[in-house]
Design a protein around this nucleic acid. Sequence first.
DNA 1: TAAATTATTGTCCAAATTACAATAATTAGA
DNA 2: TCTAATTATTGTAATTTGGACAATAATTTA
Lengths: 233, 233
Amino acid sequence: MSMYRIDFNDFFTSAFSVDCILFGYSEGEIKALLIKRAMQPFENLWAIPGDLIYPDEDLEQAAERVLFELTGLNNIAMHQSQTFGKPNRHPQGRVITISYFALLRIEDFEVKASSWAGDVQWVSLKNMPDLAFDHNHILSSTYEMLKLKLQNEPICFDVLPERFTLNEFQQLYEFAFEQAFDKANFRKKIKYIPLIAHDEKQQNVKHRPAKLFSFDKTTYEEATTQNRYTFKM
Amino acid sequence: MSMYRIDFNDFFTSAFSVDCILFGYSEGEIKALLIKRAMQPFENLWAIPGDLIYPDEDLEQAAERVLFELTGLNNIAMHQSQTFGKPNRHPQGRVITISYFALLRIEDFEVKASSWAGDVQWVSLKNMPDLAFDHNHILSSTYEMLKLKLQNEPICFDVLPERFTLNEFQQLYEFAFEQAFDKANFRKKIKYIPLIAHDEKQQNVKHRPAKLFSFDKTTYEEATTQNRYTFKM
DNA sequence: TAAATTATTGTCCAAATTACAATAATTAGA
DNA sequence: TCTAATTATTGTAATTTGGACAATAATTTA
């Protein structure tokens, strides 16, 4: 299987790839999952995991597959960000790339390098080295998109576990926006988000366990299509 | 020149197109500029203006060119929205399309059909017929993107004339969101947007002319990179 | 100079947001 | 069983923002 190695013969055709930006949070920092390229071009440079899309493959499906192949991460729901297509962004020909992203808690997953990737590592956004291709640019605009979507769409629930505590919910936003929120005010803010409260409680905690909630997608979609509610954080 | 007619031989290559959604406002309605397709597939159906991207062409540049070729509209700054790539969205092969949009006042421009387009027309969003390809879907998600960006990024200034009155500014938002805003409150809301006030005044008006402003991009970018300000409407 | 029209500013009230404090619930350990 | 520790949860008052509406200022035409 080729990776970024293709013939560019047809006048109107190009290659297209997906780049998968995985944002993770741990130790109070936002990090991105990078791979060390094991082949030319940009051999040994760090890069965003990405590869070409199969001809019969849906874009989102491609993003999930590529992420799995390069990092071993499975079943991560990816969100489309932007498409990058400067004619010379790839040294070997025209490759237009569609960036996808997801957000997760690093300690919940274990990544392993594939044969394509010499190494896989979480790198802090504050400490980003020079990356292959235009990946520094892709990374920073995708981070902006992540924040924009977290504020305007309920993508946080793709990231949180099926049942979550309100504190986990709050921490997600604190990590993504790198600021603390007042607990009481946070709960007032989310008052109108349709959540289902469960009777069970958080397990394995040393002190008072928190109540568990899940996102009420049905009610949410009813309310938005009827224009009674718009998600806003 | 081929339009949506290509060979799909290479395993990993596909065709890339741009679709240009032009939103216009007039008579209190949002309309989109559509063309009537003059060739197969979907001959005689209405569609969003779009065509394939040249191999040496930047994406945004392609969007501006395609819009010009199909409608005669020149020098419209286009904004990227989303990329659509379901494997079977084009009946003749794999075409991934990147949607671009812009917003303008219909009476400021005159469109003319090209040879590719049998007809060109502004169609109200509320009265949208069945379009070619997945263009109904593309159109409605791009409208959502337009609104999202108008609220979170200063793209309004790409749409407004270089020097504009605060009323023109307000009308833009009233059209896009299809609701009236209080004049006094609108001015309070925009208080922190960096604008340059000019001494000249609006021309050709029957009564007191309004002051002209322009967007202070330099100050805006300084303030945002230093995290002192974020655009919000 | 007056009338007409529109820009611009100001004020009040309601609602939302913020900061901060108090209380309730639960667990661990003595 | 009781107490200390910890965290969830609720409450309140102060501050800021947003919306409705009114008043004033500026300019053009006649």
